[in-house]
Design a protein around this nucleic acid. Structure first.
Length: 485
RNA sequence: CGGGCUAUGGCGCAGUCUGGUAGCGCGUCCGUCUGGGGGACGGAAGGUCGUGGGUUCGAAUCCCGCUAGCCCGACCA
């Protein structure tokens, strides 16, 4: 849709996702034209059905705002259509997840939403999963199900294609719709029945390898969330009947979170930042894992009061959190049950060591809004904003204002900012309210009054601070801001 | 799965108790005046009152069944 300026520098920043050492280009993840996530738009041509009133069914901020901002519409309980604005954000999150998975050396693929029941009978989960699993019978009377997760399917693929230890390790992942027939869906996309999730599956020859995969995922997840402008804290999670210490959940702190969490305040000061990570380095991944998991951080499920009390009192925090991801090492649970084995150097056969690792992509949209909103609406971080900036024409039909807006629209589009130009014949107040509601991080306000002095206004949605400057300076400023996102 | 509640135009609601012409605000459409935080005036469109049955001369309203949705809790990415 637009030509990105070439950016090659010593740090090897990717010119598309603007992060270091991105492998996305070579893997085709950064196509030159991206039609469903990166484009400018004139509001009169877009589909943005915003609501002035809050629909009665929405009780929490993210649900309310997603409905009001025209991001989603409910199709039935816990099942949503993603309208253009919501879809754009969802795709941006998906891109970030892909980029960070590729960077960590994981391999993208795609599995179907419908799966044969037989595979689940092999693992024993067809009966264990209960009513949460949506079961379907096809015309031949064959038992099918809408996948709530994909361990069985990926293990089946693996066992049919991999025979030797030489082919390990491998981590395969996909980002796909899942369905869990929740008893009580609620909170909009935060607890839907249908949800969009990245789920990755690691295969290793031994426990040490599997634990490196585990650590590698933890590190890559840290960066994934940070790039979205979120602080997600890895917390020791309940491993359930499988046992062991190897599961962590990533929690975003938010008042409306469903989980009660306890942590050492030190964890909220930690950041992976843009340090260069060698994901093949066992030592480095282990060191980062240790760094981020040593301070106390647990959900109520694993909370240990005695241990918690060893944290200095002024750093002991309790809060609520939204779970946006989980990593899990479960060893040979599925490989044994389903016969996923490799031949070892000595000729023996060994079930592979597995782990599964998930990021709730659709839930993240809700979590982001929970963490970033005010009374007027959403406040998107730059990295996930559906449009980089909004252009508000205060007097549609005024030739100077129209021309200035048009010029800004072209220039911002060319700079890759993806502006949304509110060219409706509406009053200023209505335009401001819409912009605040949909939460674009920057707004350029253009009116005849300012234009007489050659200036427009650049306003930050987050701080509300407004600066007057020439249109050219505004474009430069935004280009600068987005170059570092 | 336990407990509570709701269903009337695109959204928010009144009307139901006490049966009788479906109503209000917002939004939408057209026009005029406007023009820096959801403006004013005039006009218009839009509803089998969730659904099936029953009572009645007559049902949004009363009775029975069903469905969908929301909230609290237990469960879960």
């Amino acid at each position: 849709m637009f030509k990105q300026k070439k950016r090659v520098d010593a740090n090897n920043f990717c010119q598309f996702c603007r992060t270091r050492h991105c492998k996305g280009r070579s893997l085709g993840l950064h196509p030159k034209k991206t039609f469903n996530r990166s484009f400018s738009m004139r509001l009169t041509r877009y589909f943005l059905p915003v609501l002035k009133d809050t629909p009665a069914e929405a009780s929490i901020a993210s649900h309310r705002l997603m409905l009001r901002a025209g991001m989603i519409r409910q199709a039935s309980a816990g099942i949503y259509s993603w309208l253009p604005l919501g879809f754009k954000v969802l795709r941006k999150l998906e891109d970030i997840v892909h980029e960070e998975q590729i960077r960590a050396g994981h391999i993208p693929m795609l599995m179907p939403t419908l799966q044969p029941a037989d595979l689940w009978r092999e693992s024993g989960r067809y009966d264990d999963y209960g009513k949460e699993m949506l079961r379907i019978t096809d015309r031949h009377g064959r038992d099918m199900l809408y996948g709530p997760t994909n361990e069985e399917l990926i293990t089946d693929i693996f066992r049919n294609s991999v025979n030797s230890y030489k082919e390990l390790p491998k981590t395969l992942y996909h980002i796909q719709w899942k369905f869990r027939d929740e008893v009580r869906p609620r909170f909009g996309v935060m607890r839907g029945r249908e949800f969009f999730m990245k789920d990755g599956y690691s295969f290793d020859i031994d426990e040490a390898g599997a634990l490196h995969a585990y650590n590698r995922h933890l590190v890559s997840y840290l960066r994934t969330y940070e790039r979205m402008g979120l602080q997600a804290i890895p917390m020791r999670a309940d491993t359930g009947p499988i046992g062991g210490d190897h599961s962590h959940e990533f929690l975003v702190l938010a008042k409306t979170g469903e989980s009660e969490v306890f942590y050492d305040r030190a964890v909220t000061d930690m950041k992976l930042g843009d340090r260069v990570v060698d994901f093949d380095s066992v030592e480095q991944c282990q060191a980062i894992f240790d760094e981020f998991t040593t301070p106390y951080a647990r959900t109520d499920e694993t909370h240990d009061e005695a241990l918690f009390n060893e944290v200095p009192e002024d750093r002991r925090m309790s809060a609520r959190g939204i779970e946006v991801g989980q990593i899990f090492y479960f060893g040979t649970k599925y490989s044994k049950a389903m016969g996923a084995e490799v031949v070892m150097p000595d000729g023996s056969r060994k079930p592979v060591e597995m782990g599964s690792h998930g990021i709730g992509v659709s839930r993240l949209v809700g979590a982001l809004i929970e963490a970033n909103h005010d009374d007027n609406g959403i406040i998107w971080p730059e990295s996930v904003a559906p449009f980089g900036a909004g252009i508000v024409n205060l007097k549609q039909g005024d030739s100077a204002a129209d021309a200035a807006c048009e010029g800004l629209y072209q220039a911002l589009t060319k700079a890759g900012i993806d502006p949304l130009y509110d060219d409706r014949d509406e009053r200023a107040g209505a335009k401001f309210a819409t912009m605040d509601l949909i939460g674009l991080p920057w707004r350029i306000t253009v009116g005849p009054r300012g234009l007489k002095n050659g200036v427009v206004e650049l306003t930050s949605r987050r701080t509300g601070e407004t600066e007057e400057m020439s249109p050219e300076a505004a474009v430069d400023r935004l280009t600068q801001i987005y170059a570092n996102v």
